[in-house]
Design a binder for these strands. Structure first.
Length: 253
DNA sequence: CGTTAGCCCTGCTGGC
DNA sequence: TGCCAGCAGGGCTAAC
């Protein structure tokens, strides 16, 4: 592959030079995911890691790029004369870096378990909530406790479980933790089936929009009727994030 | 250690 | 129409 970096912020604090050097001439052997990180494993056994953050997009594309396709382009990989992989990112929060095979094992220890994996269940949830007083929603967003749940999926999971986002995590009953672990798994599975949430910029690797946003029950629906009880959906701020919930269906205690 | 506020960015929206 | 405050799929860091 060939590589060009248009915006050095995407590789920061590493330089584009070392990033490019690790990639040129390599082949992508396999593609995986851990939490919100995309893992492109190379023949060298190093891994190109990409995090989309808020507005990143990684898409297969014809080359060369022209006109509007150059806007917000941060780096581009060429597989051949006319085929490649482009990373676009309006807000420039997205990151890409090379993870060397030597430390790849240790790197992922900072993340909690995959919510769709076998080790994530009510028991794990009970362990992470402990006696903590922070809002349950903040814990769901904490990647070191559970990997991969974002703002949309925290709101939708808490609605399905009937739990108020501000509930002190340690106060949740065993029954509620069971409901919550099930709601998280079901919410993520539904979202994956609909290929994600394209509120604005998200696109899949082929440039297609997801459709999960069409089925949001509370997220970004303040002022609208709750799909279950018709109460008005409210919006508050939790841990600095916009948070949407039904004041009647989601219990405060 | 747990928790929170501020910050990193750009572009869009809604209120005046 | 123009201007501008506020907000947005996330996460790191400093400070308490």
């Amino acid at each position: 592959m060939q590589v060009e970096v248009q915006d050095s912020l995407v590789t920061a604090p590493e330089s584009p030079d070392s990033f490019i050097k690790s990639l040129v001439g390599q082949t992508i052997a396999s593609v995986k995911r851990r939490g919100k990180y995309l893992l492109l494993e190379l023949d060298s056994q190093d891994t190109l890691v990409v995090h989309l953050r808020m507005t990143g997009r990684l898409t297969q594309t014809r080359l060369p790029l022209t006109g509007d396709d150059m806007k917000h382009l941060r780096f581009i990989i060429g597989f051949s004369e006319n085929e490649g992989l482009a990373f676009h990112d309006t807000r420039r929060f997205g990151k890409a870096f090379i993870l060397s095979r030597r430390i790849s094992g240790d790197y992922w220890k900072k993340l909690g378990p995959e919510p769709l994996g076998n080790s994530f269940n009510a028991r794990h949830l009970k362990r992470v909530v402990g006696n903590r007083k922070s809002p349950i929603k903040s814990l769901l967003l904490n990647q070191s406790q559970i990997a991969g749940i974002g703002n949309i999926y925290a709101d939708e999971s808490l609605f399905q479980a009937g739990i108020h986002p501000l509930r002190p995590a340690g106060d949740l009953t065993d029954e509620e933790l069971k409901q919550l672990s099930r709601a998280i798994k079901e919410t993520l599975k539904r979202a994956i089936k609909l290929e994600g949430s394209s509120i604005d910029s998200y696109r899949d690797s082929l440039g297609e929009r997801g459709r999960f946003q069409e089925t949001f029950r509370v997220h970004r629906r303040q002022g609208e009727p709750c799909p279950s009880c018709k109460s008005t959906v409210e919006k508050i701020r939790v841990g600095g994030r916009g948070t949407y919930f039904c004041p009647k269906c989601q219990h405060k205690s």
